Simulated scan of single mutants.
Amino acid sequence: MSTGILGHDPRLPLYQQLREEMLAKIAEGHWLPGAPIPTETELTRLYGVAIGTVRKAVDTLVNEGLLLRSQGRGTFVRRPNFDASLFRFFRQVDAKGQRLVPTSRIIGKQLLAPKAEIAEALSLNREEQAIRLERLRLIEGRPLFHEEIWLPASRFMALLDIDADAFGDLLYPFYESQCGQCVASARETLTVGVADSACAQHLAIGPGAPVVVIQRTAQGYDRKPLEYRVSQAAAEGFRYQIDIS
């Protein structure tokens, strides 16, 4: 009986077996975010399949948002811009109308046994630990977001030995450079809540003041959870805009 492409389930259509193999190349870091993948001709030769099979596998990964075609340049592993999502809802500009870019500050870092809902979000079993980061995102020194970020300790243990000041403003490139973990996709849920005393202190608002809460679960290219994040911001200044046609 055939074992399929490099051991992938032979019951799957050939293009799906190839998709699984290409996805494994990305998840294992053989094909890096932002870098081109082999050409269709090279993939045809490498896996011994027809050009139509290659194109269908590539089309599937493009449609899933994991690959990006660039006319005349090739096909690349897509690197999503997750930070832009927060500013669909919060538009911060200076007196001249120029968009302000937030800075970030890690204010806490711990290794903990996560609560049940955190463990479930990260697909952790009862014995596994998680790293909790606490972060502020600031505009001109003024807190805009308070964030609680949870990471599987098994994948991010290296972060515990890094000084908080070394984290920088963007976490996902930092995860990649320090831990070899690449975030590929995320799902966000937006709700409204009230600030507890700790959050209120960080955001310089009153306890019980309304806050916008953005929960995000981020996944790697292997579709396993890499991060669970709760971002809170004062509801004042919140805006939502969408074009409908």
Rank of each mutant, 00 (worst) to 15 (best):
S2F: 14
D9M: 04
L12G: 04
Q17D: 02
L18W: 07
L18A: 05
E20L: 14
E21Y: 06
I26M: 15
A27M: 04
A27Q: 01
A27H: 04
E28P: 00
L32T: 06
L32K: 15
A35F: 15
T41W: 06
E42F: 06
L43S: 01
L43P: 09
T44I: 01
L46Y: 12
G48N: 01
G52I: 12
G52D: 14
T53H: 08
K56N: 08
V58I: 14
V58F: 00
D59P: 05
T60F: 00
L61R: 07
L67H: 02
G72S: 04
T75H: 06
T75W: 13
P80W: 02
A84C: 03
R88W: 13
R88A: 15
R88L: 12
F89C: 05
F90K: 14
F90R: 14
K96F: 12
G97Q: 09
G97W: 04
R99F: 02
P102F: 04
S104Q: 02
I106A: 03
I118L: 00
I118H: 07
S123K: 08
E128V: 12
Q129T: 06
A130H: 09
R132M: 12
R132E: 08
R132Q: 15
E134T: 14
R135F: 05
R135N: 00
L136G: 11
L144C: 03
F145L: 10
H146W: 09
E148N: 01
P152I: 07
A153M: 03
F156R: 02
A158G: 00
D161V: 02
L170W: 10
L171E: 01
Y175Q: 07
S177C: 02
C179Y: 06
Q181G: 09
V183L: 08
S185M: 12
S185W: 12
A186C: 07
T189D: 13
T191F: 13
G193W: 04
G193L: 06
V194H: 12
A195L: 10
D196L: 11
D196T: 08
Q201L: 11
L203P: 01
L203T: 00
V213T: 09
V213G: 00
A218K: 03
G220C: 12
Y221A: 11
Y221C: 11
K224Q: 06
Y228I: 06
Q232D: 07
A233L: 08
E236T: 15
F238Q: 09
Y240G: 13
I242L: 14
